[in-house]
């Protein structure tokens, strides 16, 4: 029986022709948009994690503390809210780093009469400390320490960061709106086409006393097949775009986001898209059922 119902559903799909194709295309587009957004946002989320790891706040100290003092200071700062890791950088270490950076010009540093670099604390904030507000509060707290000369780094990063996330959020909203409109359109189109194509069959089925599920199931199956087809096309589309555009975008991504490469959707995302397509099409079938009621 199921084979028969599936056959009926396939037949409708063929018969509905152009309208079925446009319904599938609409489902494809909306799912491709969803998938693309997903791909971007998961990559951005990855970038966010990396940002956070790289964000450092540096506290320059008024004078170099003794090793006992510095250990106590590190302990005190580590206890502050929003602080994940604290590293003490003494004057000598700072100069060493500078020499490394200067490379073959390091002799310039050697010529200095005394070490001009201050001792400092390198602070990695926690997740809360890495938000814009959290970072501001943290900078204030660090600035208030009696040992602090100046607090640097971090906040400009934070600003950019907050801006990026706002953009991401807006982008998500826009895609969501387009997606919703496309999906509604798809479902409506599917509803009308399915009803039209099956009207005669449904009338005959009812008149000869077919059980209600037999009358209705082909509609549902047909909708679900449309949705699944749309989802598969969407995934192909995404794979294609990823393969073609990915290598081109990657240098840009490396510079702006600091990501080595764009990652594609994970298997569970792909499975979700397939499911979403099938459901989307199924909803069209169910709506068609609803309207078919006398």
């Amino acid at each position: 029986m199921f084979g028969f119902l599936l056959g009926e559903a396939l037949r409708d799909l063929r018969r509905a022709g152009r309208v079925a194709v446009s319904a599938i295309v609409l489902i494809t587009l909306s799912l491709a948009a969803l998938g693309a957004f997903w791909l971007l946002s998961s990559n951005l989320a990855e970038a966010v994690v990396q940002f956070r790891e790289r964000v450092k706040i540096v506290v320059y100290l008024k004078r170099e503390p003794s090793s006992g003092e510095s250990r106590a200071l590190v302990e005190r700062v580590r206890a502050l809210p929003g602080v994940a890791v604290v590293r003490y950088v003494g004057k000598a270490e700072a100069l060493g780093t500078l020499k490394q950076v200067l490379g073959k010009d390091a002799a310039v540093a050697d010529a200095l009469p005394q070490n001009p670099l201050p001792a400092s604390l390198e602070i990695t904030p926690t997740a809360e400390g890495a938000t814009l507000e959290g970072a501001r509060a943290l900078v204030m707290r660090l600035g208030a320490l009696p040992e602090t000369d100046e607090v640097g780094g971090g906040v400009e990063w934070m600003e950019q960061f907050a801006h990026g996330r706002r953009l991401l959020w807006l982008f998500g909203l826009g895609v969501g709106a387009v997606l919703a409109a496309a999906a509604i359109l798809t479902v409506t189109t599917a509803t009308t086409l399915v009803l039209h194509a099956r009207r005669d069959e449904m009338e005959i089925m009812r008149l000869v006393g077919a059980p209600e599920h037999v009358v209705r199931l082909p509609l549902l199956l047909q909708g679900m097949m449309q949705g699944l087809l749309g989802a598969m096309l969407a995934i192909w589309l995404l794979v294609g775009c990823y393969a073609i555009l990915g290598p081109r975008v990657e240098p840009l991504v490396r510079e702006t986001l600091g990501l080595a490469r764009l990652t594609f959707l994970r298997p569970h995302n792909v499975a979700f898209l397939m499911l979403a397509g099938t459901l989307l099409g199924g909803v069209g079938g169910i709506l068609a059922r609803g309207r078919a009621e006398p």
């Binding site: 009812r206 008149l207 000869v208 006393g209 077919a210 059980p211 209600e212």
Partner: peptide
């Protein structure tokens, strides 16, 4: 509704 369907299964109709 299901009884109607059952009834119709016993009736052959030429429309």
């Amino acid at each position: 509704r299901s009884q109607v369907a059952a009834l119709r299964r016993s009736i052959g109709i030429v429309f």
